[in-house]
Amino acid sequence: MANASSKRIATANETALRNLQLGLLIVNLLAPTIRFLLSLITSRRFFPRTLPLLLYIIFTAGSIFTWRWFVTIGSPKRGANGAQVRVGEDLGGKGVVELGWDLIYMTWICTLGSAILGDWVWWFSLLVPAFGAYKLFSTIRPILGMFLPGIFGPKAPKDDTPQGQNVAAGAAEEKGESRKQAKLRARMEKGDKRIQQVQRR
């Protein structure tokens, strides 16, 4: 069963790497072609302004670096006789691999979008570092909670949640009330009309 899973991961990785290489070629050839055609038809410039051009270079270099890293970690290593020796990492996994795919897809979207719609599309590329910062913060938040529990620690539940009602019921049991009486009292304090009608009778 483990062997079947390894073969599935190896096949999926090879397909993903082939599609990724093809996508990099298509996007980086199609975008300049669209820009050139639109510069002939409309009054738009063929070359982007300085900031979008710089973002294109940075994000394209990052996506190529990510692709090469995916090839390094995801390609299955085969023996001399063609038998598979070691399966690479799963390229459909979570964590840093998922962020790498996000970087590649966002680069493709911004490259083609800026060629078709205009250079303002590159502002969407800021979503990648923002999402990375959010994931990093959610990873280190428990560590920060140990040192600053008042700011980053877990929040106390409100009284209207079921957990809060259970805490209230536990406190009522200490006073000598049953759970049912504690729940009725909590509903009455909230202003439940059914409880008020029972009390009038």
Rank of each mutant, 00 (worst) to 15 (best):
L184M: 13
Q165G: 13
L144H: 07
I143S: 08
Q163N: 08
K183L: 12
T139I: 08
A169T: 13
G132E: 08
R141P: 02
G176F: 03
F131T: 09
Y134N: 02
G170S: 14
A186D: 02
K158F: 08
D160P: 05
R185C: 05
D159Q: 12
L136N: 05
P162H: 09
T161E: 00
V167Y: 12
G176H: 03
K135D: 08
L144M: 10
S138Y: 11
N166H: 11
F131S: 10
D159K: 14
A182R: 00
E174Q: 14
A169G: 14
G150A: 03
P154F: 06
A169P: 10
P157G: 04
I140W: 04
Y134W: 13
P142S: 02
L148E: 10
K180Q: 06
P157H: 10
G153V: 03
P142M: 03
A168S: 12
E177P: 03
I151E: 08
I143N: 07
R185K: 13
R179W: 03
R141K: 13
A156E: 14
G164F: 01
A156H: 13
K180A: 10
D160T: 15
P157Q: 06
F131E: 10
I140F: 10
G164N: 02
S178D: 07
A133L: 15
G150T: 01
L148M: 15
G153P: 05
G176K: 02
M188N: 12
R187Y: 09
F152D: 03
A186C: 00
A133R: 04
A169S: 15
A182G: 02
L144W: 09
F147S: 09
L136K: 06
F137A: 07
E174F: 11
D159L: 11
K155F: 11
I151M: 13
F137E: 00
R179E: 01
Q181V: 06
T139Y: 11
E174C: 06
D159H: 08
Q181G: 06
A156G: 04
E174I: 14
A169I: 14
G145D: 05
Q165F: 11
L148I: 13
F131K: 13
L184H: 10
Q163V: 07
K175C: 07
E174L: 13
E173T: 05
A133C: 09
G145N: 04
L136C: 07
I151C: 13
G150P: 05
R179M: 02
A172N: 00
G164A: 02
